[in-house]
Computed example of a mutant assay.
Amino acid sequence: MLRPGDSFADYVVERILGRGGNAMVYLAHRQSEPGVALKILTDDHRDPAAIERLHREFEIARGLQHPHIAAMFDHGPTWLAMQYVDGGSVAALASLADKLSALAQVAEALDYVHHNGVVHCDVKPTNILVAKSFLDVGAVLIDFGVAHVMGEQSPPVAARPSHVQASLPYAAPELLTGSTPSPATDEYELACTAVELIAGAPPFTAATPMGLFDRHLHHPPPRLSYRIDWVPRAFDSILAKAMAKRPESRYQTCTEFVRLITRALT
Rank of each mutant, 00 (worst) to 15 (best):
F257S: 02
A50N: 14
L41K: 10
G138R: 04
I261R: 01
I228S: 06
F73R: 11
R56V: 08
R215H: 10
D186W: 08
A244Y: 01
P232G: 09
S7T: 14
D44A: 14
A97P: 00
I60N: 07
R233V: 13
A104H: 06
E189T: 14
T177W: 04
H29W: 10
Y226S: 15
M24L: 15
V130Q: 01
A234N: 13
M82R: 08
V140K: 07
Q252Y: 06
P161H: 03
A206S: 11
H163L: 13
A109G: 09
M210C: 04
H55P: 01
V36A: 03
R160A: 08
S89T: 03
A28Q: 11
L110Q: 04
V113Q: 01
G18F: 09
D186P: 08
A191M: 07
S237F: 09
E108R: 09
V157P: 00
D74Q: 14
Y84P: 01
H29Y: 15
A159W: 05
A139R: 00
P202C: 01
A199F: 05
A50L: 05
Y112M: 03
T180M: 12
F73H: 14
P247G: 09
A264E: 07
G211Q: 05
A199G: 04
H115A: 15
C192R: 05
N22K: 12
G88V: 10
H148L: 00
L260R: 15
E248C: 06
G200Q: 03
V36I: 13
S101K: 14
T78V: 15
L17A: 10
D43T: 06
E108D: 15
G211R: 07
S89R: 04
G145N: 02
P161Q: 05
S167Y: 04
F204Y: 12
